[in-house]
Design a protein around this nucleic acid. Structure first.
Length: 726
DNA sequence: AGCACGCCGACT
DNA sequence: GTCGGCGTGCTC
């Protein structure tokens, strides 16, 4: 007897196919079962979805008209119900098709395999990892035999005996006591761990993970960037020899990613460490979630389903009734506000381990520096900063110069006619990269050789305008020329950014060079400010942080504060040198409150002033935003679509009972209005309450596909709920 | 998104 | 006379 089965398949939201589709199946399949189903002419993967099909759908499509499920992937245990709940919530909250979310968070390799192929992979993995294949009758996987199993494997030698645990600071002990309580609670609260750099947050994560493992549970640890996984992985591996630890991020090969995911899903992994996509990793024994550097914007997915992995981690922890720890030295204002109102439990660690001091912050007022002669480029480093860097070099200490702009110069310009190196496909300048003499668009990757003469007037004198890391490296090397290092020999200047680390292993290699002291001055973008422990760095300088102060983005100050605090944290990691370490900031706005707060390392004060501004302006976390974005060949089409969509929403609002205020703003071009030949427009929606916003979106979004036909040439649209930048 | 169907220009 | 351009429309 055929049955009706709901299956989530990858269908885009804007095609009007957001819900699970109906298929016929000869027998019942549990929700979460991976299947292959026909859709149009294709055979695609899908996941059996729970819930009864709605009445109308059942009447519109009688059972006999449904296509049958093509294949059931019995080799894979069904995804757990809480996993389906998490995906369901994500799709609903972020306004995406449920199948799109479900399938996009599975390892890509899993989608390609058929049942036989999957079975083969599972057997191979089981054999290699030394665990028994689960019984076909869906029985629980056998409990791990920890060290015993591992040591019987060929390859790595006996795990080293666990190292002695470091003594806990009183603050750490207190935090851990609170967390220990949370493990006992039926519905543990969300914890915000506010710990200054060097206060030993990682030790807290390790001990909390230990607690979860002791209870026979799994721990999930999220980090913002792939770059940060290896070092954290090393610390966890060292602390938990004999435990199975897997990482999950997009840098793994497809086969590795599948193997690690399967290890976690089958319950064989004790610790899962990964980037934002790991928040969806199925874990049958989940006991703890840690979100490190919770303020980091990388947690927000920026394409496809635009989810916040941090927010989903909090939701998942609530669903699965496990403790969650959000850790940061500079929490996001959203989390901070939740901690202030008591919705999150605030845990504070204000002391640095080993009584190390935070670096002294020195502000250089650029208005007081001698100006360059007319026509001459400004010096990259002010005289006092240059002197300080020189002194470090002479003492054999390292300096880190932070400039958040890669390339040689952000734009090239003709001195005669004023031509600038614009991108023909985007409304952005193409960046001059000197090494390979190219002009590169950082938005669409369009790359050309630098022209010999001005394309407009033929003038041979084309000048770089502004400064990126490539140019800074060149200029600093010049400024430090002839300086004597203690060991003798020339000053060594190195640069780490997306361009110098493109090759696999390049970042590790360059970091190693910094660690072993074969670099005196390191120049880098944001990349070097995150997480790395540079023991010999005693001076960090933000060369040009001002641009972030004056952008229209209301979150710019919050982000700059976090970035500078994080950069400051790179200095004086070695307690002995901490007293003499400094954070330098070159700015044209030395009296800006952001810098005042930074000088005092006073996050709470900065957060309070920012929150006050946000409240006055009715911005998050005091309001809730959504951004409807769309792209079209023609800007007028994009704007027309947004306006019509707005009219629809306003009509809906007059029908709905009021649930707070909702304000619609006019469609505007985003910061970069044209990318790869498509015009972008966006419309901001501001709601006074989250439920009010969610209710509107739920009613509104399903109506948008109907507008499609009326706007010829409309490429695509998408809703960004809780957008990070507007 | 895929993938078809569909109706107009340069090739064997 | 066919191959193929991408415009429009559908997928349980």
């Amino acid at each position: 007897m055929m049955q009706r089965l709901r299956v989530a398949v990858e269908t885009p939201q804007y095609a009007g196919l957001a819900r699970a589709l109906d298929y016929a199946c000869p027998h019942h399949l549990p929700a979460g079962t991976l299947v292959r189903v026909p859709l149009g002419q294709r055979n695609i993967p899908g996941i059996v979805w729970a819930g009864a099909p709605d009445q109308e759908a059942a009447e519109a499509r009688p059972l006999a008209s449904l296509k049958p499920v093509a294949e059931v992937m019995q080799a894979l245990p069904p995804l757990p119900p809480v996993w389906c709940d998490l995906v369901d919530f994500t799709a609903r909250y972020y306004q995406r098709a449920v199948g799109e979310v479900a399938l996009s968070v599975l390892p890509p390799e899993l989608r390609k395999l058929d049942n036989a192929g999957l079975d083969k992979r599972l057997r191979l993995l089981a054999k290699r990892s030394g665990w028994a294949m689960p019984e076909p009758e869906g029985s629980l996987p056998p409990r791990r035999k920890s060290a015993k199993v591992q040591s019987s494997r060929p390859g790595p030698a006996e795990p080293a005996p666990p190292p002695p645990l470091p003594t806990l600071q009183p603050e750490q002990a207190q935090v851990l006591a609170t967390l220990a309580d949370a493990f006992e609670q039926a519905q543990p609260p969300c914890h915000l761990l506010h710990g200054v750099t060097g206060s030993g947050k990682t030790e807290v994560y390790l001990r909390a993970a230990q607690h979860a493992l002791d209870l026979g549970r799994q721990a999930l640890v999220l980090v913002p960037e792939i770059n940060l996984t290896p070092q954290l992985e090393a610390r966890f591996a060292e602390r938990f020899p004999g435990r199975r630890l897997v990482s999950l991020h997009s840098g793994l090969t497809p086969a590795q990613r599948l193997a690690n995911w399967l290890t976690a899903h089958l319950g064989h992994a004790d610790l899962v460490l990964g980037t934002r996509l790991a928040v969806f990793c199925p874990l049958p024994r989940l006991g703890l979630i840690v979100v490190d550097e919770e303020h980091d914007p990388s947690y927000k997915q920026q394409d496809g389903a635009r989810y916040s992995a941090r927010d989903l981690a909090v939701y998942r922890a609530w669903l699965e009734k496990v403790p969650v720890v959000l850790g940061s030295a500079t929490p996001s204002l959203e989390s901070w506000q939740h901690a202030q109102t008591g919705r999150y439990k605030l845990l504070t660690m204000a002391q640095r381990v080993g009584q190390g001091e935070l670096p002294k912050v020195r502000i250089v007022d650029m208005n007081l520096q001698p100006q360059p002669a007319p026509g001459q480029p400004a010096a990259p480093l002010s005289e006092p900063l240059l002197t300080a860097v020189r002194a470090r070099v002479e003492r054999g200490e390292q300096s880190l110069l932070f400039l958040n702009r890669r390339g040689f110069a952000p734009v090239l310009s003709c001195t005669a006619c004023g031509w600038k190196s614009g991108c023909p496909h985007c409304s952005a300048w193409r960046v001059f990269h000197k090494l390979d003499r190219t002009l590169r668009c950082h938005h669409c990757s369009f790359t050309e050789r630098v022209p010999k003469a001005c394309p407009d007037c033929g003038n041979l004198d084309i000048q770089p305008v502004g400064r990126g890391t490539e140019r800074l490296e060149e200029q600093v090397a010049e400024l430090l020329q002839g300086l004597e290092r203690p060991g003798g020999g020339a000053v060594r200047v190195a640069r780490i950014d997306a361009d110098t680390t493109r090759l696999k292993g390049a970042l590790e290699q360059q970091l190693a060079a910094v660690h072993d002291g074969s670099v005196d001055v390191l120049i880098g973008t944001q990349m070097v400010t995150k997480g790395h422990d540079f023991r010999r760095v005693t001076l960090v300088a933000a060369v040009n942080p001002d641009s972030a102060l004056f952008t229209a983005d209301f979150r710019a100050p919050e982000r700059l504060f976090a970035t500078l605090m994080q950069a400051a944290g790179r200095a004086g990691r070695d307690a002995a040198a901490a007293a003499s370490s400094e954070m330098w900031i070159q700015t044209w706005s030395p009296t800006h409150p952001l810098f005042t707060a930074l000088r005092q390392h006073d996050f709470a004060r900065f957060a309070a002033s920012q929150l006050q501004e946000r409240e006055m302006a009715a911005l998050p976390p005091f309001s809730h935003l959504a951004l409807l974005r769309c792209e079209a060949r023609d800007a007028a089409v994009a704007e027309g679509f947004l306006r019509q969509a707005r009219d629809m929403a306003q009509a809906l609002l007059t029908e709905q009972a009021a649930d707070g205020q909702v304000t619609f703003y006019a469609p505007v071009p985003p910061h970069v209005a044209k990318v790869a030949g498509l015009e972008r427009r966006q419309m901001l929606i501001e709601a006074s309450t989250r439920p009010g916003l969610q209710r509107l979106l739920a009613a509104w979004m399903p109506q948008l596909p109907a507008l499609r036909g009326q706007h010829k040439g409309l490429a695509r649209w998408a809703m960004d709920v809780d957008p990070l930048s507007i």
